[in-house]
Amino acid sequence: MATGIVLLFNIIRYFYYHQYLAFPFYWTFFVLTALFLSIAWWAGKQFDKVKYLSERDPLTGTYNRRTVEEYFHKVAKISDIKKQSLGVIMLDLNKFKEVNDKYGHHKGDELLIQVATALNTFVTKHDLVARWGGDEFVVLVDNMKENTANAYVKELQQAITLQNAENFPNVEASVGYAIYPQHGKSFQKLVQEADAYMYKDKKEN
């Protein structure tokens, strides 16, 4: 976008000075244009980098807590307009502490990265995966229906187990969900509901 603005500015500059005012045209015009474009391109890349880092978890590359909450408010409004539901899934890894204690934190980090990969592969382009903190993840699922939610959760758990079967055969995930607007209209309320469901699942397993 920045390069486009600079390019447009230089086109206007050319027509104003050299066509409208009839100033002599020199080759240095192209040098200055190239310089301005280079600066704009570099500034644009830095902005994109800062924006990416502000939205993402540095370890897994998934979105962070602030971003998922902001995204929820946007998609909730869209869901209201379309009269659709929205799923909020909470996911917690079982035996994650054992992995850290037995193999070290670098192995724990490796596991989190693998889980993030499994989640991003499983969800659709309209969904969003975020690291909530520690070994917890949140997934926003577009148009998630209550009558198919349990089946969706089981498939999600299987995807994570299969992804980690070779390197972490004993690690599974406890998953809970809540659905907007049936189970709540605020993000905090839905997270609480999904979290309670998740810990019920963890105790049963």
Score class of each variant (00 low, 15 high):
Ala2Lys: 11
Thr3Met: 14
Ile5Arg: 09
Val6Glu: 09
Leu8Asp: 05
Asn10His: 13
Ile11Cys: 13
Ile12Asn: 07
Ile12Cys: 12
Phe15Gly: 04
Phe15Arg: 10
Tyr20Asn: 09
Ala22Tyr: 01
Ala22Trp: 00
Phe25Glu: 03
Trp27His: 04
Phe29Pro: 03
Phe29Val: 03
Phe30Asn: 05
Val31Phe: 15
Val31Pro: 00
Ala34Thr: 09
Phe36Asp: 12
Ile39Val: 15
Ala43Ser: 13
Gly44Trp: 00
Gly44Asp: 12
Gly44Ala: 07
Gly44Ile: 01
Phe47Pro: 00
Phe47Thr: 10
Lys49Asn: 12
Lys51Tyr: 12
Lys51Glu: 15
Lys51Leu: 09
Lys51Ala: 14
Glu55Tyr: 06
Arg65Leu: 15
Arg66Lys: 07
Glu69Ile: 07
Glu70Ile: 00
Lys74Glu: 13
Ser79Phe: 01
Lys82His: 11
Lys83Cys: 08
Gln84Arg: 12
Val88Gly: 02
Ile89Glu: 00
Ile89Arg: 02
Ile89Ala: 00
Leu91Gly: 03
Leu91Gln: 07
Asp92Met: 09
Asp92Trp: 07
Leu93Asp: 03
Asn94Cys: 08
Lys95Ala: 08
Phe96Leu: 04
Glu98Gly: 15
Glu98Thr: 08
Val99Ser: 07
Val99Lys: 06
Lys107Phe: 10
Lys107Arg: 12
Ile113His: 04
Gln114Tyr: 02
Val115Leu: 00
Leu119Gln: 09
Lys125His: 14
Asp127Gly: 12
Leu128Phe: 12
Arg131Thr: 04
Trp132Phe: 15
Leu140Asn: 03
Leu140Gly: 02
Asp142Asn: 15
Asp142Pro: 02
Asn143Arg: 09
Asn147Lys: 12
Ala149Leu: 04
Ala151Gln: 11
Val153Met: 13
Leu156Thr: 08
Leu156Asn: 04
Ala159Glu: 07
Ala159Pro: 01
Thr161Pro: 00
Gln163Ile: 02
Asn167Thr: 13
Asn167Trp: 04
Pro169Cys: 08
Ser174Lys: 02
Val175Asp: 01
Ala178Cys: 06
Tyr180Ile: 06
Pro181Met: 09
Gly184His: 04
Leu190Lys: 06
Gln192Phe: 09
Asp201Ala: 15
Lys203Ser: 14
Glu204Ile: 08
Asn205Ile: 08
